[in-house]
Design a protein around this nucleic acid. Structure first.
Lengths: 199, 199, 199, 199
DNA sequence: ACCTAAGCGAGACGGTACGTCTCGTCTTGCG
DNA sequence: CGCAAGACGAGACGTACCGTCTCGCTTAGGT
């Protein structure tokens, strides 16, 4: 995760079209600020300064703060695994552990919280947030519904997915992501308890 | 629910102690602004102007924007019941139903979302938010741990409380509070499934 | 004075040399903008857009805003009469009236004020401004010194010219060019009163 | 001309009323910037930074750049006399001499030219400028209309005032303030020639 | 019956950030 | 190589709130 902390060099126009280097520098600067100072310290002005870009250049391509936030967030929404083994409990625990680690490690947790906050202020942010949530939920439900030897879910996978996602969000929002595996497992067991039947 | 839309008269000191009328006017003004303009349009300055109060008066009693926000939420939150019958499932379903109805009916759902947003921006807000959440959690855990004839919880009540609260927040944040009782019951049953044992 | 208000067509390079049509279109656009929006609304960007020209094309031929302004101003400094009849008072009144009308009618008054403003920002503008003023002054002094039957000026013509020009500028700068002939005549009479002697 | 170049300390509110120290610091900063960088380098942002004041504080009391400029000019303008002796010609000569000396000595000449430039750019500045000019004109007319033994003006004092002011502006704008007293006297005599009658 | 102490309204203050504007430079791709 | 087009870094514009401060007024409670 080597981040270049050096001040970026001055870039210039490459003609009557968008300079991808500039766009990249702006996204990177936004990301770094969100990571180091959080949503509270995020401002277009700081992004511009850190990226060595003019404010109008940012507003030319991202119509608002929220748009920039959403763009940066899209960059980051990768890397989470959806494991499928024979033990569904293990799978869920592993999923949550990697998710929490992902949120804790990099800026993605902060970004996700930022999006949630921004969604309260800007309605455009809300739409994208809801749409993203829905795809995540479906993906997780898929994982849960995957066939496993000798067992099957007694209730809908989406319900389990909802409860799992709810639990993860709560941990994120209450800043309690640093949970020992035992605790995660107990909560997962609780969610799954009534949902499994042996064949 | 008579709301005074008239501009409040100027109040003055009633001596070396807090003027409850002032406090009330401030809370009311904050509520009205949140209701009519949402979190996006909420500012201490507007509250002061509408309540015909000085800004320092607000900051004297509420250390931050978030504290005021939370206080206003409390005003609205009065009607939530923590039922204790012999059936813990019924209790939880009833609790969630009344909570969802409360969030949907008035401005309290919006207010709670506002608080969550504010908690991402201001660390002081985060503390207040976390502390509030913790009391709610304990209160709910208490309800769950109440002695019921013939049954007791096999695991910690706080874990069940966490999962319940998580579920409620998720519904709030995804704007899906309008859930039929059957769905709530299924989710509650899922949470409680592994948590109960007969004596 | 028919000015084309239609948007000029797109021009292109005519090879490795300056396109005079382009230069003309730029001058014309600058003139129209100064006339319709005044110095306040004058910007190289607007000129480029109206002339359907690129900004660099403007900067290639006019090193600065001021240079363009001065060029445009040179285009306009014509058309004023310097009448010589037997009555010097009538002459001066007529001169001022036509000058005021000229300033009010077309863009030249605005341009003159613009040059004065620009001269405060750019020293190059100042030089040209001063040089222009000096030629105007000499031309007016010439008119005043022209032989008239039976009378001659008792003092230097340049002094009268200075006072006349001063009066005109003041009217221009205070936006009070719409003066009835009677007022002009009274002021002129005042200036001339001590300057004439019968033979 | 010892000017304090030290950065001013942070000031604070002194209650619900204007802090004169702040006003003074802002005026002083504006003056210094105008002196060192001229009108071209003048900006509200720089003034705020140098005065250690917030931009809104400046805009609270001076509705526009021009208003600040004019205020600063006032600071400098204090030393102009409106003499009233028995000889109106001497009075006007003395007035112009002291005015020219004042414009030449310090920054006030430059400031006044800046104001004239600003008035061409911003309509609000124009109003302020015109209003200021009108008071100066009246003040001068008053001086001219003052009763003097044995003589009275045959025409309106305001006309004489206008011509005098016009002359002074012209000298300022053409950078020819360094005029020998004889020249001033001749011009003044010219203006006054037809305006006086013995009793 | 004074006197201190605190609450209160009002609003100015130093700041930060907003989103917009124009400047003068730069590069592209067409002709 | 000229030209239209327009992106770019820079930085000022004027506005909205932030949270802190000081004022002058009002009332209550202690002496």
């Amino acid at each position: 995760m080597a981040k270049s902390d050096a001040p970026p060099p001055r870039r210039q126009s490459i003609g009557a079209k968008r300079n991808p280097e500039t766009a990249e520098a702006i996204r990177a600067a936004a990301l770094e600020i969100l990571h180091s100072e959080g949503y509270a310290g995020f401002s277009v002005e700081k992004v511009a300064k850190r990226a060595r870009a003019g404010k109008p250049t940012i507003y030319r391509w991202w119509p608002s703060r929220a748009a920039l936030l959403l763009d940066v967030y899209h960059l980051q929404k990768s890397g989470i695994e959806y494991p499928v083994t024979d033990d569904i409990e293990d799978d869920l625990v592993m999923y949550l552990q990697s998710l929490f680690a992902h949120w804790l490690d990099g800026p993605s947790g902060d970004i996700f919280r930022s999006i949630m906050a921004e969604a309260q202020v800007e309605s455009s942010a809300r739409e994208v947030f809801l749409e993203y949530v829905s795809t995540r939920r479906e993906r997780l439900a898929e994982m849960l519904a995957a066939p496993r030897s000798g067992k099957k879910l007694a209730i809908e996978a989406t319900r389990i997915a909802d409860l799992t996602i709810s639990y993860a969000w709560m941990r994120l929002l209450t800043q309690t992501l640093d949970v020992p595996e035992k605790d995660i497992r107990l909560s997962v067991r609780c969610i799954l308890a009534g949902a499994q039947t042996s064949i």
